[in-house]
Nucleic acid binder design. Structure first.
Length: 459
DNA sequence: TGCCATT
């Protein structure tokens, strides 16, 4: 309840509240909030920061000053979280963007409030500011669409500050663009109306419109990608045609992993694995995902981020043709901020990597040896196994400290053997039990403890 | 099968 000491405040009842809305009863510690009767702010509204406010003035006092420029949607004096002390500044949002612009030009540095020695500050709040939340990434454009075409597409949603189509060195469009709007609201409106709304001529999938990555997200996404490589089978770097034998190998692996994860009873895994192969064969898509979800490595292994969204797995195995993205409804399922699914938005990644050409995609994995009894030597790895696959294969048995497939320096070909180190001997033993002799394609893995140091350095 | 760390 707003204090109405003298009883002079207008009744807060359901009376008419138009025009000068001094009758707003929501004024208090929490600021001036829109009551149900207050219209929504425009989608392109701007949140203003107001600085150099005398500490004696609260929302009610400030309101008349700002109402002059339009209807206020929200006005909040900033207070210290702990002490509740007035911080001398406020956030102000008008219902209309135009009001904010007027207020800014009329007030910013234009007058000084009583008791202050610097002029009032009225400008877009930092949160509106540096652009990250009003800059959009636009994917799945037609290759022949230029800046002008993109502008035409987006201009109904507001003021476009910047529009760039990403191009290869030879000038051809990469089929994506960045569009920066004047406000967050405009950007959001564009996302809502355009994302997935149509398929451009020559594009393989429907239009992608999303917030461009912030630096932070970029980093986060990179981590997710790494985690993806560790946490789910994801033979991304392989030629996509190589599905046959390789997939079979993987499925067998998955079977083994499952078996191991289910029954640490050890012993011959083969029988179980064979059964699991059938399971796997019947559900090609689901199978690769199972282990990641089903097992939590005994040692609380590294890099097991929250279960990866299905589309990664699906796309990992599928051709690079449009998947379910862009279908109405699918985006609301998966496109909620933190779980972007890389393969589903192939083009969304292109600009990222062009911005950061030397993306350290190969994890700079330190080659660490675990304690004695924790290091495995693995032979007869499939030719196409890399470090990631090796990690993946052994992750279910414990925390993998390092995994290295040896590669012929000259040919860059795997030498078909490698090392895996766990952080404890039990995991290592479990892995040996489960994986030694395990058949992959024509080969059987040889998994045994690595020879101790002094054995291979007899000097 | 081809067998134990990498620079």
């Amino acid at each position: 309840m707003a204090a109405a000491p003298g009883g002079s405040a207008p009744p807060a009842g359901p009376g008419p509240r138009l025009g000068f809305s001094t009758a707003d009863s929501g004024i208090g510690m929490s600021g001036l909030n829109p009551g149900p009767a207050v219209p929504m702010k425009d989608h392109d509204a701007i949140k203003l920061f107001v600085g150099q406010i005398p500490r004696g003035l609260d929302e009610q006092d400030l309101k008349p000053l700002f109402e002059e420029f339009g209807r206020i949607y929200e006005l909040t004096v900033l207070k210290d979280r702990l002490t509740g002390l007035h911080k001398g500044c406020a956030f102000l949002t008008y219902c209309a963007r135009d009001s904010a612009l007027k207020a800014q030009s009329a007030l910013h540095e234009q007058k000084t409030l009583p008791g202050m020695n610097r002029p009032i500050q009225v400008k877009p709040a930092a949160s509106e500011g540096r652009g990250e939340d009003r800059k959009l990434f636009v994917g799945m454009l037609g290759k022949q669409q230029g800046e002008e075409d993109v502008r035409r597409l987006f201009q109904p949603f507001g003021h476009i500050e910047e529009c760039t189509v990403l191009r290869s060195p030879d000038g051809t469009s990469k089929g994506c663009a960045f569009v920066k709007f004047g406000s967050q609201g405009e950007a959001q409106a564009a996302i809502q109306s355009l994302h997935g709304s149509r398929t451009m001529a020559g594009a393989s999938s429907s239009l992608v419109v999303k917030l461009a990555d912030t630096d932070r997200e970029r980093a986060l996404r990179r981590m997710q990608q790494m985690a993806g490589q560790l946490g789910a089978f994801h033979p991304a770097p392989l030629p996509l045609g190589a599905c046959g034998a390789y997939t079979t190998a993987i499925l067998q692996h998955q079977a083994a992993l499952l078996a191991a994860a289910q029954g640490p009873g050890l012993g011959p895994v083969a029988a179980v694995a064979a059964q699991m192969q059938h399971v796997a064969a019947f559900s090609l898509v689901a199978a690769p995902l199972l282990p990641a979800a089903a097992n939590s490595p005994p040692g609380g292994g590294p890099g097991t981020l929250p279960g990866l969204p299905a589309p990664i797995g699906v796309n990992g195995f599928g051709p690079l043709t449009p998947q379910t993205n862009g279908q109405p409804g699918s985006d609301s399922l998966y496109n909620n901020g933190l779980s972007p699914y890389p393969a589903a938005y192939p083009s969304a990644y292109a600009p990222v990597s062009t911005t950061f050409p030397q993306q350290p995609s190969a994890l700079p994995q330190q080659q660490r040896e675990g304690p004695e009894g924790c290091n495995l030597f693995i032979y007869h790895l499939p030719q196409e196994f890399g470090d990631a696959e090796l990690i993946q294969t052994f992750l279910p048995f414990g925390a993998v400290v390092s995994a290295k497939v040896f590669v012929d320096r000259a040919t860059n070909q795997s030498k078909c053997f490698g090392f895996v180190s766990f952080d404890n001997p039990t995991s290592a033993q479990t892995a040996i039990q489960a994986m030694n002799g395990f058949q992959i394609g024509m080969k059987r893995l040889k998994v045994q403890l690595k020879r101790p140091k002094d054995a291979n350095r007899p000097y």
